[in-house]
Amino acid sequence: MTLSTAEIWLVILGLGAGSYLLRLSFLGIVGSRELPEWLLRHLRYTAVAVMPGMITPMILFPTATGGQFDIVRMGAAIATIAISLWTRNATLTIFGGAAALFALHFLLAA
């Protein structure tokens, strides 16, 4: 299915308007009001809910391997989780996970 240039621009403008209206609903309308405690408590879990959904497909079905399981990425993910649980430090977790990925790639893929 191919889209014409006009259809592509219509989709881009529609997505832009939808994104703007979604942000406006929080920042423009609710931004100056005090939110209830129960809502703030639930909003704290947004990143915890979204990040695994974004990261898990990249670990289990990486595009670099054509969607095939890759022991290097799985090992780096396990090492990253272990570093996170051990240190409770986001910076060390990020750099430790990257180091684990590069080390495993060097050791297993070479």
Score class of each variant (00 low, 15 high):
Ser4Gly: 14
Leu39Gly: 04
Ile29Arg: 13
Asp70Lys: 04
Phe106Asn: 05
Leu60Gly: 09
Ala99Met: 07
Trp38Leu: 11
Leu35Ile: 11
Phe95Thr: 09
Ala99Lys: 04
Leu15Cys: 11
Glu37Thr: 14
Ser4Ala: 11
Ser32Pro: 09
Leu22Met: 11
Leu24Tyr: 15
Thr2Pro: 07
Ile94Asn: 02
Ala64Ser: 11
Phe61Thr: 07
Ala76Ile: 03
Leu3Tyr: 14
Ser19Lys: 07
Val72Lys: 00
Ile83Asn: 01
Trp38Val: 15
Arg44Trp: 09
Trp9Tyr: 13
Ala77Trp: 12
Leu22Asp: 07
Met51Val: 15
Ile94Ser: 05
Leu10Arg: 14
Ile29His: 10
His42Tyr: 14
Phe102Met: 08
Arg33Ile: 05
Met51His: 02
Ile94Val: 13
Pro36Arg: 15
Trp9Asp: 05
Arg88Trp: 10
Ile8Lys: 11
Met74Pro: 02
Arg33Lys: 11
Glu7Trp: 04
Arg73Met: 14
Ser84Leu: 04
Leu27Phe: 14
Leu108Val: 07
Ile59Leu: 11
Arg41Pro: 00
Val50Asn: 00
Thr63Cys: 00
Arg44Tyr: 08
Glu37Gly: 05
Gly67Ser: 08
Gly14Gln: 08
Leu104Phe: 12
Ala82Thr: 09
His105Tyr: 13
Ile94Lys: 02
Ile83Arg: 01
Thr91Gln: 03
Leu24Ala: 15
Leu21Cys: 05
Arg44Asp: 07
Trp86Cys: 03
Leu40Ser: 13
Gly28Val: 12
Gly96Arg: 01
Ser19His: 10
Glu7Tyr: 01
Leu24Asn: 06
Thr65Pro: 00
Leu35Trp: 14
Leu10Glu: 10
Leu101Pro: 01
Ile29Pro: 00
Ala47Lys: 10
Thr93Cys: 06
Glu7Lys: 02
Tyr20Met: 13
Gly53Tyr: 08
Ala76Val: 01
Val50Asp: 01
Gly96Pro: 02
Ile83Lys: 01
Gly66Asp: 06
Ser4Asn: 14
Ile78Gly: 00
Ala99Phe: 10
Gly14Thr: 13
Gly96Leu: 05
Thr91Glu: 00
Met1Thr: 10
Thr2His: 10
Phe95Tyr: 11
Tyr45Gln: 13
Val11Pro: 05
Ala77Met: 12
Leu24Pro: 00
Gly75Arg: 00
Ile71Leu: 09
Leu43Gly: 06
Leu107Asp: 00
Leu40Met: 14
Ile55Met: 15
Leu21Trp: 10
Tyr45Pro: 02
Tyr20Glu: 07
Ile78Asn: 00
Ile8Arg: 07
Gly28Pro: 11
Ala90Gln: 06
Leu35Gly: 01
Ala98Arg: 03
Asp70Val: 11
Thr93Ile: 06
Phe26Asp: 05
Leu92Phe: 13
Ile59Ser: 02
Ala76Asn: 01
Pro52Gly: 07
Gly28Asn: 07
Met51Glu: 06
Ser19Val: 13
Ala17Cys: 13
Val30Tyr: 13
Glu7Phe: 01
Leu10His: 09
Arg23Pro: 00
Phe26Trp: 14
Ala79Met: 06
Thr87Gln: 03
Thr91Pro: 00
Leu40Cys: 09
Ile12Glu: 09
Pro36Trp: 12
Thr5Ser: 13
Glu34Ile: 10
Phe69His: 04
Thr2Gln: 10
Ala77His: 04
Tyr20Arg: 04
Met1Gly: 11
Arg33Trp: 03
Thr2Leu: 09
